[in-house]
């Protein structure tokens, strides 16, 4: 610990250390065990699923919990199932399963389209959708896309289970609607309809990097007219964001260049990215507009699932 004569030191990232501080480890065999362990540690602990976001945090000593509770073997958090027009994706579903699952491709194709952009192959073999959503990196793909999908999160605590919509779930940088001690169990996604279309793209410096901007769009397009447009942006602020004004600009419109330009202009109301040392907010907004335009053109031109099925 370094202290300074005048003002307190802001700890530098990791202080150039990469071995985790000591902690105890507990492997939970049930949610009940996990909650009990959490209670016993009085919150001085962390849950670990795939560990792909957590391990660097521990290694850099950005967090130094006294206990790590391994929830990666909880069967209750596994599996992908369909019921009543809703796809339930277990929180321990790995990114690689998201990429290759036929159910995801059929019922939540926006997630399939975003999946190849999630980190790198080896990370995708271990990282889980629940883990990335709970970690809530504003530049991560899956958390952002739950906004465009109107997903709901199934969250468990020692009292029972509750649901929380994606919209409003991301509260601040790495902050979510999951209360201390709670565990994200599953993601519920309304299934992709016959006339729905979606597209995802991001602008990353290198393949697999966190993007400068990423965007997923979905809309229902019937007879060329778009409704229920939902656009989700990542890496544009402290949390992933919906673009309500831009969505409104295409509601009931044909997706022609006029409508697309209107959506791009409206995006200025939705996104106000900050400047950082490399990228100005204005530049990020510009890139977001370019991306939105490209994606809307893509869904305007792409065949709907109905057409695909017929072909």
């Amino acid at each position: 610990m370094v202290t300074k004569t005048k003002k307190p030191l802001v700890p530098r990232l990791g202080s150039e250390r990469v071995k985790p501080a000591p902690f105890r480890y507990f492997r939970a065999n049930s949610l009940a065990e996990a909650f009990a362990a959490y209670a016993e540690a009085e919150g001085d602990c962390t849950y670990m699923a795939g560990g792909q976001s957590l391990l660097p945090v521990l290694s850099l000593r950005l967090q130094t919990p006294s206990l790590v509770i391994d929830i990666s073997r909880l069967e209750e958090l596994r599996g992908i199932s369909l019921a009543n027009g809703v796809l339930r994706i277990g929180a321990l579903t790995r990114h690689n399963e998201m990429l290759h699952s036929p159910e995801i491709a059929r019922y939540a194709p926006l997630l399939s389209k975003a999946a190849p952009y999630v980190a790198h192959p080896a990370i995708r073999n271990k990282g889980t959708i629940g883990g990335t959503i709970a970690h809530a990196d504003p530049a991560a793909e899956f958390p952002g896309m739950t906004l465009a999908l109107n997903a709901e999160f199934e969250i468990a605590n020692s009292e029972g289970r509750r649901r929380e919509p994606a919209n409003g779930f991301f509260r601040g940088l790495y902050e979510t609607g999951i209360a201390p001690g709670e565990i994200l169990v599953a993601i519920h996604v309304p299934v992709f309809g016959e006339h729905d279309r979606c597209a995802y793209h991001e602008l990353a410096r290198r393949r697999g990097d966190y993007p400068l901007v990423g965007c997923g769009v979905r809309a229902t397009i019937r007879d060329g007219v778009a409704t229920n447009g939902r656009f989700a942006f990542i890496a544009v602020g402290a949390v992933p964001q919906r673009a309500f004004a831009a969505e409104a600009a295409i509601e009931g419109q044909r997706l022609d260049e006029t409508a697309i330009a209107a959506a791009q202009t409206a995006l200025e109301q939705d996104l106000q990215p900050d400047d950082d040392s490399e990228t100005t907010g204005a530049m990020r907004l510009h890139l977001a507009k370019v991306l939105l335009g490209r994606l809307l053109r893509e869904i305007a031109l792409s065949p709907s699932k109905a057409v695909e099925a017929a072909a």
Binding site: M1, V2, T3, K4, T5, P20, A21, P22
Partner: peptide
């Protein structure tokens, strides 16, 4: 990033633990 103090320990992890216990008073 300039090195100020060295710790030698049984393992690298313990050496890193000890780094956290060193008190340095500095004036910018």
């Amino acid at each position: 990033g300039q090195a100020m103090v060295a710790v030698v320990a049984e393992t690298r992890a313990i050496a890193e633990d000890a780094l956290g216990l060193i008190q340095v008073e500095m004036s910018e």
